[in-house]
Amino acid sequence: MDNLNQQYEAIFCIVNYGFTDIVMETAKQNGARGGTIINARGTGNAETEKFYGIVISPDKEIVMIIIEKENRDQILHAIYEAAGLESLGQGIIFSLPISHVLGINKEIQSETTTEGD
């Protein structure tokens, strides 16, 4: 694990269907730029649902965001506050180290008009 990219990390965020706007909004407020959304289906535990009397919606969306490492903790916490497991979004948020990255436009990073991914 020596040649990891020291500048960027990837945040993956699995939320209930329809909560991606909140996630992206929060991430952008904390310094992220674009994100990519994939549809997914969760496999909720039927026993758990019965036991707690709640419904775990199987419709999920996964948000992938490339962020700078220094913003990581801030963004993770902010997203957890907004759409974490305790909210309606029931989101699971984690970050992964990345070793190579291509296609991030550094020059226009500081402005609001940035390239989407």
């Binding site: 990837a10 674009g34 490339i66 180290p97 070793s99 990255v101 291509l102 296609g103």
Partner: peptide, 21 residues
């Protein structure tokens, strides 16, 4: 590979690529 797709990504893909070990 990244050397080769660098320009393609920039010009027409408007895309991004990253790798996770």
């Amino acid at each position: 590979l990244y050397e080769e797709i660098k320009d393609v990504l920039k010009n027409e893909g408007r895309g991004i690529s990253f790798t996770i070990p």
